[in-house]
Design a protein around this nucleic acid. Sequence first.
DNA 1: GAGCAATATGCCTTGACGAGTATATACCCC
DNA 2: GGGGTATATACTCGTCAAGGCATATTGCTC
Lengths: 127, 127
Amino acid sequence: MTSIYPDAYIQSVESSFAIIAEPHRRAILSLLLSSERSVGDLERELQLSQPSVSKHLRVLRDAGFVESRIEAQRRLYRLRPEPLMEVDEWLIPFRRFWSKHLDALEQHLDKMDKVPPVKGRKKHEQP
Amino acid sequence: MTSIYPDAYIQSVESSFAIIAEPHRRAILSLLLSSERSVGDLERELQLSQPSVSKHLRVLRDAGFVESRIEAQRRLYRLRPEPLMEVDEWLIPFRRFWSKHLDALEQHLDKMDKVPPVKGRKKHEQP
DNA sequence: GAGCAATATGCCTTGACGAGTATATACCCC
DNA sequence: GGGGTATATACTCGTCAAGGCATATTGCTC
């Protein structure tokens, strides 16, 4: 029962999209934009428990979003650009799409009043 | 705001990031890039069950990623740009970050061969 | 080396989500 | 209106991830 897995125990490589689906992880990445930070820094700034922060950082590091360096007992984490670039690349064809469509939308907004909010349940044609 | 739903209900709205964390949903969005499609179309192209497709479309529609129109018994779904634009906007500061850092990285790779100063627990390879 | 500080990890519980199956609803054509 | 087609929804089940708590690990200081 006590299955001690080897360190490379899971290859369930979540996609970069799944990684940044977690709000706290996005918050961590945003904080790391301005400067590298220790676990304790993030713990305070995010109001999260230390184990939670460490676990999110582990996920982020395994996925290549961050890397760490050691300074005394601290680990200082900083951003790595590659995974988010991957996300950005996925968006490219959609950017083409919406730049094409926003003109039409603008035109549409001229006649229509106002566009309903994106968030929340929207009323479309409901059978 | 302009929403007609109570806040308590709205809170269950997943962020756009969570929506596109699902690979099938990303596939649906990519398919809709080229043209609008019916549920049956998507079902065949994705090799998914019809209820699964419908449920994913429901999630996507609730979040504003797609909208539908009715044609006979079919519903034809098409893209809406706004939610992905939101994602794109989140990426803006990161784009600034990595465009700054990729120069440094390139430069770095020139002199150094390969030097992971961090203790390499795991190789993060980019698929 | 003892004790403390900072961080990582293991175990457990809980909640959310996706898929499958069955069924309901809506629309067409005869 | 009956039958068939296309899609939506209800219910259930299994999985998985996030958080809490306890503990292990690492490195500093004295």
